[in-house]
Design a protein around this nucleic acid. Sequence first.
DNA 1: TTGCTATTATACCATACAGTATGGTACAGT
DNA 2: ACTGTACCATACTGTATGGTATAATAGCAA
Lengths: 204, 204
Amino acid sequence: MKISAGYAKRKQRTILNVATDLFIERGYDGVSVDAIVKKAGGSKSNIYNYFGGKEGLFRAIVEDLSQQILSPLADAEIDSLPPQQALNVIGKQVLSVVLSDRAISLLRIVIGESQKFPELGNMFFTSGPKPCYERLTRYLEKQQNLGKIKPCNSQQATTQLIGMFLGFYQLQRLLGIIDAPSQEEITNIVDDAVNTFLEVYGIS
Amino acid sequence: MKISAGYAKRKQRTILNVATDLFIERGYDGVSVDAIVKKAGGSKSNIYNYFGGKEGLFRAIVEDLSQQILSPLADAEIDSLPPQQALNVIGKQVLSVVLSDRAISLLRIVIGESQKFPELGNMFFTSGPKPCYERLTRYLEKQQNLGKIKPCNSQQATTQLIGMFLGFYQLQRLLGIIDAPSQEEITNIVDDAVNTFLEVYGIS
DNA sequence: TTGCTATTATACCATACAGTATGGTACAGT
DNA sequence: ACTGTACCATACTGTATGGTATAATAGCAA
């Protein structure tokens, strides 16, 4: 059917990329369909044919971007590492992903439009934070069974650890009060949090 | 000069109250000036005379609301309490304020409009989170000097504690994934966080 | 009552926007 | 070369909005 499927696919990607940048920069209401078309080339018809309209395009973009940005959160390979290292690795992963400029911009939009697009919140959460949380919980459970850390409520412990990681930083980032932390700052934050955590839950 | 100053003040308050509800419910772009006028009575001229326009009204509202909602954060009287109780008191205060429906709605708007109104982030932060953080830091310093808790970097400890309080909850609230926690849940979260914290920093 | 000012109600303006319609063009398959 | 489809450029439609102007009214001071 699709005669020039390759072309259409390419065009769709161009539109997605261009619109992504615009939405991230100016928010949903700050970008007009005309502006997207002007920058992407082609005509409005594309957007309405491919994505069903501005809202459809927006949903597609947030879905795409959430995957793209957040999926690394669930990728950290920690299962074979001892606690000290595992928590360090996942902590650095979490901080550098979640506090990055792009992730914060995305999160701002998702939060800001959560009235108009209530399903996006769930999508965002499912694309990274949730699997990361679950992976960490499972890891802590396993380490308990192995006797490497003290018995505890692993869900609660995970919440506390992630809380210490993100702490005040995520809020301040969202409010535009601080910039993205450097690799060095991230290392310090994570080291301290892991130390505190293992002082309670670790086996000395 | 102002002949009926009392009347004007009253009218201003009415407009503020009405517009506050609307903005919180539908966001900045979701509310038209006409809608505000219609609900508040009077005419557009008021808004332009009193507040200089929609943006001015919005700024006034966010400022007003931030004070109103967040100032309790800095009010908790903890200086004379021992660590266990002090941290419990302030933790409950923080959680019940910050995770409340109104605070979350306000925060959503501030975050969502932080591109258009960059100064609001700072205002929000200064109205509650920051003084609360500073008060807690000072408290921990004092307790160190009194020998009631172990020597530590009090800023870092504060960040960790607040992080454990808010943990994942604030994010999930902002994304609309969970509802405001009950008083009981708050108690549990705070108890656990304080226990973890004091297990590291407390003097047994 | 006679002025004066703030408030109201309403109409108006310029603009911006989402979405649709249309007429023309590039190009694949035949 | 012919045909049909997808695409392009552009104009148009209807509506909503922020902000201004204006004329009438209400209420206070003297």
